[in-house]
Structure formats: C-alpha cells, structure tokens
Design a protein around this nucleic acid. Structure first.
Lengths: 235, 235
DNA sequence: CGTACGACCTGCCGTCACGTCCGATTCAAG
DNA sequence: CTTGAATCGGACGTGACGGCAGGTCGTACG
C-alpha cells in the first residue's frame, strides 16, 4: 500500500493528476486512512499503468474509462482512434504544404494581402482585384487557391442545385443562399451605394472570361445569375 | 457599416465569436451606436479576414494578435508554427505505427497486459516477468518496446552521467534519482518485505545477461549498481 | 513542550476558443 | 402598440489537469 505521493513519484504522474482521476472516478484508491489519506494498492497500480498506456495513445479519460470497464470494446475504440489520428495527420499535412508554399516566397509584407485573399470568398467581382489576384494566384500555387475558393464554391454549387431541381425562387433555401450571396457582395464592395449594381453588371459582362477559370460552364453561371435575380424579385 | 449579425453571416463566423474577439481586444468594432450595438466598418472586415486566414493555419488568437500588431514578426511566427506542426506530425506518425502494430495481432484480451507492459518502467527485475515479457516483446515489435523503455532509460542515463562526472553520492541529484529507482523497484515488487533485496540480488547475478539486451555495457551497469549502493549508504 | 517542516486534505480559479442559455433592451415591421 | 427578431452583457460548460489557499496530521528537533 502506498501514499499518493509515492505512487505519483514512481509512475511519473503527479499528485494532482491522481486526485483528478479519483475525483472523476477513473482511479479510486483501494482505501482511505482514518484521516482521509488515499491508500493505493497493487490493483490500483496496475490500473494506473493501463491508464497511462492508453493516455500515451492520446485517448481521452472518458474513452479510457469505457475501455477499462468494457475491455471487449477496446478493439473498436482503438480502431476508431487510429482513424481519427489518420484524419488529423492528413489535416496537418495539408496545413504544412500550405504554409511551406506561403513561406517559400519570402515576401513578408505580402503575407497579409495573400492571407486576406485566401480568406475572401469571392475574388472575381472587380477587375482591379482580378488583376492583382491573378498574379497572387500564380504566386501562391493551385492548392492555396483551391482552398480559398472552397467556401465560394459551396455556395455556387448549392445554388446550381436549386436551378437544376427547379427549386422555387421564393423557397426558404433559395432565399437563404441568395441572402448570403448578397451579403458577401455587399461586404466585398465596401465602397458605398451603387457598387453592388456595378459589380453585378460587371459580372454579367465578364462571366464568360471569369467562368473559363471556374469549374462551371458559362451557361450554368448565366442561369444561376438569372435565378438569383428571380429570387431577389420574389423576396 | 454592418451589424454584428451581418458580419458574422457574411464571413461565416458566429456572433459569439465576434463578441469574443471584441472582448479580448482582437477585433474591436469601429464604433458603437448610442445603445451599445457594435458597428463594423471595412477595416474591421479586412482585419477579420486576416484573423480567419491565420486561424485556418491553426494559430492561437494570442499569436494572431501579435502577428497583426507586428507584421514583421509574421515570418518567424509562421516558421515556428510550421516547425510545431512538423513535430506534431511525427508524434502522430509514431502513435499510428504503434497502434497499427498493436491492432495487427488481434488478441483483444491481451491488449491490457501488453499495455501494462508498455507502461511499466522496468521489465528486467524478475525472471518470471523476464520470460513472459520476452515473448511479448517479440510479439509487439521493436518500436513498442523502445517506447516502453524510454522512461527507464532516462533514469539510467542520468545515473551513469553522475558516475562519469564523479558526482558526490550524497548530492541532491543523486539522492533524487536513487529515490526514484527505489520507488520504482518497491512498487514493481508489490509483494511485501524482502522482495526488494531479492530483486537486487537477482539483478546483480543476471546483470550480464540483461545488459546484453540493453544499450549500456555490463561494466557500466555494475558501476552504476555500486554507485546506487553508495548513494543508499550515504543517504 | 512548542514549533517548524513535510505530506496530505478539500475546494476554487485559470487555461482556450468559443457554444449555449439567460433576462433585459432595442430595432424594424405591421 | 404590439410582436418578433436582433442585440446586449453575464454566467456556466468544455478537458485535463496546474496552481494556490487554508486547514489537518505526524514527526523530528531544539
């Protein structure tokens, strides 16, 4: 039988951690002395070893508790955890390629603008930005641009789906999508009155050229714009 | 100028996040209305885009704040973050290989024992465990065993360093290390009185054989044991 | 015999980036 | 004027503890 301090020292944990495990019921000491001091026995030691082993795998204390109570579920749990680790690994890999690509071109003052661009949803509406962004796009490489466009694409895809399925222009979904579209446009052209209409005109005129670099056909885009207009009128 | 809700909707953030940014001073609205409602301007929008871009890289809000206040530090910060990501990636990779190796042998009931072994610091002190663990070691593969021994190795390395540098056996450091050594031994042989001495004798007799599988020479280990004994006598 | 020290106890606050819920106020529309 | 939506600030919760405060206990020393 050992005190909490001895157990902590011998297993490289801390007294605080052991008290925490006690508190959440993960590792209760075999007994308490008259004075309330925790007394740990060999069984507790073994359990602690298992806990620590599972923690090195990155499992949460909740998961560890379930695993120790139902050893049969271990296989499934560890497999699930392995899958989660793999997902996390590819996430990190994507981040790393983006970051290295960004840092390869050592233009520290340009970072902010590049980052801005990557976060903006729609870099296609004004021609000045078109030009500067076209250069930046070359500069950053395709993956970063892909990433930046993801959110915008989602919106366009959703709207195209509405067009294809003939969804009513006064439906809840259509109005929500167009509301976002408008909000994006309004925010992007933070100039004041009239810029929105100008941008829409510009978009209509240049849609061919722009959509040549988009994954949708110019016809689809024209239909989409018409649909958006109808939604606006019906709202 | 936009309300908090409009900004949140257009940038795919949430109202709560924007209030949080305001609270910690990361993104203050350009102004407030008479009634305290937040009003965001174009500058706020640009700053928010940068914040969101940096967040996709996994930077903390603190790091983002420093980066935005001192753009010159960006390069260093992003490089540091990249290094951190790389470290995390190799950690995850190590975990994945360990987990896959463990799950390859589908012996669900054996997991617990294997995990126990991996967490124990010193599998070299009793011959019965020696045998069963030798089999397990074969079963688990070299990496898992390496991982299990890491903690034990650290202790031995520290003590060998004391021996080499002729550190006084009554020094603070030496006593601390031996205290851990003893605590480990005492816990591992949870049998009762006398087992510790027996284990020490066994260790002295089998040290050649054992150290053959250790990264230290038998001579070093003998010196180490002698040193530990001296520390015990002086403490 | 008092006291100083070390180890232990409980309980509370802080971490990080918000989500969620609350009651109170304010805004825009009918 | 009323109603519903939007906003406000504040509080609590998340996970796995770290750190601190204030109290108790046992022991070694002067």
């Amino acid at each position: 039988m050992w005190t909490i301090g001895q157990l902590a020292q011998a297993t490289r944990t801390t007294v605080r951690a052991l008290r925490h495990y006690d508190q959440i019921g993960l590792l209760r000491p075999t007994e308490r002395t008259q004075n309330g001091h925790r007394r740990y026995g060999p069984d507790d030691l073994r359990r602690l070893y298992r806990i620590r082993a599972l923690r090195t795998f990155g499992l949460s204390l909740d998961e560890i508790a379930t695993a120790l109570e139902a050893p049969a579920s271990m296989t499934a749990l560890l497999h699930a955890h392995l899958a989660a680790l793999s997902r996390r690994a590819s996430e990190i890999e994507a981040l790393r390629t983006q970051l290295t690509r960004l840092l390869d071109h050592d233009d520290p003052t340009g970072y902010l603008k590049a980052l801005e661009m990557m976060a903006m949803l729609d870099p296609y509406l004004t021609p000045e930005q078109q030009d500067s962004l076209a250069a930046r796009r070359e500069h950053l490489g395709p993956e970063a641009v892909e990433n930046a466009k993801t959110e915008w694409r989602t919106l366009v895809e959703s709207l195209l789906e509405c067009v294809r399925t003939g969804r009513a222009p006064d439906s809840e979904e259509a109005r929500a999508l167009v509301a976002r579209w408008d909000a994006i446009g309004a925010l992007f052209h933070a100039g004041g009155t009239g810029t929105e209409a100008a941008a829409r005109r510009m978009w209509a005129e240049n849609s061919e050229e722009i959509s040549a670099r988009l994954p949708w056909s110019a016809d689809d885009m024209r239909e989409l714009v018409a649909y958006v207009t109808r939604v606006r009128e019906n709202g």
